[in-house]
Simulated scan of single mutants.
Amino acid sequence: MPTYDYQCQQCQHQFEAKHRISDPRPYCPECGGVSNKLILTAPATHGAMALGREQAIRSLQPQLKNDAHRHGPGCSCCHH
Rank of each mutant, 00 (worst) to 15 (best):
H19G: 08
C11T: 03
D23W: 11
A56P: 00
Q9E: 13
T45C: 12
Q10M: 03
M1V: 10
C78L: 13
C11V: 05
I21L: 07
K37V: 07
C28S: 05
G74T: 10
P73C: 00
Q10W: 03
Q14P: 04
C77G: 02
P26G: 06
R20S: 12
K37Y: 00
I21N: 02
P43T: 10
M49H: 05
L51M: 10
P24V: 14
S22K: 09
D67I: 08
P26H: 07
H71M: 14
G52E: 14
C77S: 15
Q9G: 03
H80D: 15
C11L: 07
G72V: 13
C11S: 07
Q12I: 02
M1Q: 05
C11D: 14
I39P: 00
G52F: 05
C31W: 03
A48K: 11
A17L: 01
K65D: 13
I39W: 08
R25Y: 08
H79A: 09
E30Y: 06
P43Q: 13
P43D: 15
Q12W: 04
A42D: 12
K18P: 00
C78I: 10
H79Q: 06
D23L: 03
V34S: 07
N66E: 13
A68K: 05
S35T: 15
S22M: 06
Q63C: 04
G47S: 12
A42G: 07
N36A: 09
H69D: 09
E16Y: 00
E54Y: 11
E30W: 09
M1C: 05
Y4M: 02
D5N: 08
L40S: 11
T45E: 13
Q7V: 14
Y27Q: 06
F15S: 03
Y4G: 00
P2H: 03
V34C: 05
M49G: 12
L38M: 10
A42L: 14
A17M: 04
H80R: 14
P29Y: 00
T41A: 06
R53K: 15
S35L: 04
P73W: 00
C75K: 05
P24E: 15
R20Y: 10
A68P: 00
Q9V: 03
M1A: 08
R25Q: 08
